[in-house]
């Protein structure tokens, strides 16, 4: 396995009883990227992340984080990786100041100046007990703790779940601003696809434990198109058109989404003799729905 990737897995598998949650996952996350790890609820995203951080034992396969084995190098990984989980697991009986002080003792690379700056920016008072902070503030504190020692890799597992729109947007902007300045890698999972689109430059899509797609975002967006074909009569069946992700017939119009759009594909569609063909680019959310939720051709 190569160290040009921040995260690399090979045939990683995890089963719970008879159910395979992560199914022979082979994933590569390039260093310096902002990698969006998408999938529906229950696709296996959180399980994958927990496997990477040695919080779960795998059934088979390999996983490496920053070139280190996920199991044997777990302690070193934690020194270089910041992790923000969906459920904040902070010590709610501590104050903000106490929690920061507590965590500082475990990281040699702790940057106190950065911490103070972030704390001021996020408006996290020193003396307030964590259980008295709102969910949004707790999430921000968790992010601060994860970034305080300037990690090489930041792993965010649905960190904005349950937060309101404003807080979510602030959160993401802070993340981008801080990490992107130093060329670090962000790996975050979310099912809020529209937010991901604003910041990610790589996309990986999990579906039923398998990685169904992994590529740069722009490549994904440029390769997927929606075609709206109007016919005079009943629209014909789509035959010989590869990569159809989703299709539906509305009146005399046939609307379908294709992957790997090309002029050759358009020529094939023209052979169906539509009266009119419109080709539309899609937002990532629509692409996502088509890939994991639609009827496949």
């Amino acid at each position: 396995m190569s160290s040009e990737y921040a995260i690399e897995t090979r045939e990683l598998t995890k089963r719970f009883g008879r159910r395979t949650v992560v199914d022979h996952l082979s994933l590569q996350v390039p260093r310096g990227s902002i990698f969006a790890f998408l999938g529906r609820n229950g696709a296996g995203k959180t399980t994958t992340i927990r496997l990477l951080l040695d919080l779960l034992d795998r059934n088979s396969g390999d996983a490496r984080v920053l070139g280190l084995d996920a199991v044997t190098g777990a302690r070193d990984i934690r020194r270089q990786v910041g992790y923000v989980a969906q459920d904040t697991d902070l010590y709610d009986w501590m104050t903000v100041e106490e929690h920061l002080w507590f965590c500082r003792g475990f990281h040699a690379a702790w940057d106190e100046t950065l911490v103070r700056e972030l704390q001021r920016k996020l408006d996290l008072p020193d003396k307030q007990k964590i259980r008295q902070l709102s969910r949004g503030k707790q999430a921000q504190l968790a992010l601060l703790l994860a970034m305080a020692y300037r990690p090489e890799l930041l792993i965010l597992d649905e960190p904005t779940a349950g937060l309101d729109v404003v807080v979510r947007r602030e959160f993401l902007e802070e993340v981008i601003e801080l990490i992107q300045q130093e060329g670090r890698t962000i790996f975050f999972s979310s099912h809020l696809v529209h937010e991901v689109e604003r910041i990610a430059d790589w996309v990986g899509i999990m579906d039923n434990g398998k990685l169904s797609y992994c590529a740069p975002l722009e490549a994904l967006k440029s390769s997927v198109r929606r075609l709206v074909c109007a016919f005079d009569g009943t629209p014909p069946a789509l035959a010989g058109i590869p990569g159809v992700l989703q299709q539906e017939v509305i009146g005399k119009s046939l609307i379908f989404t294709v992957q790997d759009y090309s002029p050759e594909l358009l020529a094939s569609v023209q052979q169906l003799a539509p009266r009119q063909v419109e080709v539309e680019p899609l937002w990532l959310e629509d692409i996502f729905v088509a890939m994991v939720g639609g009827e496949r051709g």
Binding site: L55, R78, R79, Y83, D89, L90, Y91, C103, F106, L145
Partner: peptide
């Protein structure tokens, strides 16, 4: 199945 903060985040044995 909850784990503590230390078990999840801290680089300790």
């Amino acid at each position: 199945t909850r784990q503590t903060y230390a078990e999840v985040h801290l680089p300790i044995s």
